[in-house]
């Protein structure tokens, strides 16, 4: 579920109830460091690299990833924040709200963009993000990093970097925070 969906669910009176911890804080940290290495390895360093966190869950992960890359490579990586609300394909279906203002530190033309999100689910948010990125310039390549891939894709989208592959039921909910990754359900109050 996207952040928008989570919020809408809370607004209709349901609450998230955690059932099981899947990763703890140390697991997340280790996964981030591993992904940082993989990004550097695949792109041969940080040249032309831009990290773009998806509002809102992907932004803190992108920030930590940028720190991890800087710690390994010693070079700061430009960090953008992208809100895809206006590009979603479900605008006619239900209320969509802007999460936060987009900020893009550099034009993306000829850059390598690593999109960062917390959970990859149907792929529709990433689809919207690809459209949104195109309005900021023609990137040389776009790669995708996620902390959790929970399956159930509805579009031909595949991550390049994954913290953890997590089989789930469609109606379950996965939450990623500083404290780790938990799986649970939305329950009526």
């Amino acid at each position: 579920m996207s952040g928008t969906e989570r919020r809408a669910a809370r607004e209709d009176g349901r609450v998230f109830v955690a059932r099981a911890a899947v990763m703890d804080a140390a697991d997340v940290r280790r996964a981030l460091v591993r992904i940082a290495h993989e990004i550097l390895e695949r792109n041969h360093g940080t040249a032309d690299l831009v990290l773009v966190g998806l509002q809102s869950g992907g932004v803190p992960l992108a920030e930590r990833l940028a720190e991890a890359i800087a710690a390994i490579d010693g070079t700061p990586v430009p960090l953008g924040r992208l809100d895809v609300a206006f590009y979603r394909d479900d605008i006619p279906l239900r209320p969509v709200r802007a999460e936060s203002v987009t900020s893009m530190p550099v034009e993306l033309t000829d850059r390598v963009v690593v999109l960062v999100d917390d959970v990859l689910f149907t792929g529709r948010t990433v689809r919207a993000a690809l459209d949104a990125l195109a309005d900021h310039g023609r990137a040389r390549a776009v790669q995708l990093a996620v902390m959790v891939d929970r399956g159930h894709r509805e579009l031909p989208i595949r991550p390049d970097y994954v913290g953890k592959n997590l089989p789930t039921r469609r109606d379950e909910l996965v939450e990623v925070s500083e404290k780790g990754v938990v799986i649970g359900d939305l329950v009526a109050r």
């Binding site: 609300a85 206006f86 590009y87 605008i91 969509v96 893009m104 459209d131 309005d135 900021h136």
Partner: peptide, 9 residues
Amino acid sequence: RPIPKVPAL
């Protein structure tokens, strides 16, 4: 933005 337009509506 370079392309000041979104597909929202």
